[in-house]
Nucleic acid binder design. Structure first.
Lengths: 216, 216
DNA sequence: ATATGTGAATGGGTTCACAGCT
DNA sequence: AGCTGTGAACCCATTCACATAT
């Protein structure tokens, strides 16, 4: 076991592999080659083999990868063999959509609490959750052992919300707000910003085609 | 003027620069150095200067960059000096949140039509929009000159929706569905997938800290 | 003095190509 | 024969460092 630094791009591809493996498994495919996996994801076979080689030797030469085994190994590497407890901050329309999104639970992400700064929203039921006041954030995060905070508040509030989450012990932030969040480096942020995505896409749209870009 | 291929990572950073420049401008800052810009975004000054040098010489040696001028130049480079017409497909909770999101219009993105495959949803008003049937998609996209499609349908429907959008002439897709979408290479996709973001973050959360990752 | 713009150097991720296993 | 695993080669992005301008 060595301390080779694994590139973040590699880490970001692993969930894609997990997703495709789960898909082909449900279609009854037992074994898959790096080439077939790559064809589905539009990634070179060499890339896939190299990515996997950071973590071990999962394949059989001459045959390929056992789909179920590789999926399970990757899930374990990513920490997806456990449930993750999350909370939502900001119960606007986006927040409601997040709470009711059916895609989180099957992947092991549970939204266990919802907070809003607006007193009119507090107490209201959204999905299965009662909206709590942000003033109870620290207490509830600790009592429910929440590990991940999902931030869906306006840009102006986002940094202070993230600060509160981090100081309550949350180390993972999924940030929907259009800001460049600052966190201590024992915490991690992933941003989902539709405006940034659109604004970088329009560069290519203004220039017709030719400049093919990769759909991550 | 040459045909140096500009890396997509560079293109993706430009909107960040625009955002920060607009922010400091509204606070009255007239001139900014690459160092100050970099401090805000946690990007090295050299990176910023190199990025900008792909497109021209916007700064003054010894002084820095005129904030308003640089913002305007970058907006023009990105094609943000025009309005963009978009449509939404999939008027579920997420779709409603997207339609009502106040962050698009000030950045020049207008959602001009909304489509849903569910007949019970068609005809309903969401925000200012009347939900249309997907069977009218082609006609309305052409009549409203829609350039970008925002896809907020379940995974199972997403690829066929994207196919319809592309064949109606849309060349930009903002995809919220958890699939690896396939498009012809005169079209562009940007994905927003909260599950993938979470699943790559948990890798780091399971390992405590040390492995600092960059918040894009 | 101070900060840009840019070739050169460095570093890091991807692809190649082949040994080795089935 | 077919496909993995991996060092080496390659390529691309970042950083350095300095000439240049104010």
């Amino acid at each position: 076991m060595s301390t080779i630094e694994i590139p973040d791009v590699v880490i970001q591809r692993l969930p894609l592999y997990v997703r495709v493996l789960a898909g082909v498994l449900s279609q009854g495919t037992k074994v898959i080659s790096s080439k077939d996996l790559g064809d589905i994801l539009q990634i070179t076979p060499a890339q896939i083999r190299k990515d996997l080689s950071y973590f071990g030797r999962f394949g059989k030469q001459g045959r390929g990868y056992n789909v179920r085994f590789l999926r399970d190994e990757l899930r374990q590497i990513l920490g997806l063999d456990q449930m993750w407890s999350t909370c939502l901050v900001g119960v606007g329309r986006l927040g409601e959509a997040i709470i009711n999104y059916p895609g989180f639970i099957p992947e092991g992400f549970n939204v266990l609490a919802a907070f809003d700064s607006d007193d009119k929203s507090v107490g209201r039921m959204v999905g299965d959750l009662r909206v709590d006041s942000i003033s109870n954030l620290d207490e509830i995060i600790q009592s429910k052992c929440i590990q991940i905070g999902i931030v869906a508040v306006p840009a102006s509030d986002a940094q202070s919300v993230i600060d509160k989450l981090v100081s309550s012990g949350v180390t993972g932030i999924l940030n929907y707000a259009p800001i460049s969040a600052q966190v201590p480096n024992d915490a991690f942020v992933r941003n989902l910003d539709p405006v940034l995505s659109l604004q970088s896409m329009t560069f290519y749209l203004t220039r017709g085609n030719e400049t093919s870009i990769d759909a991550i």
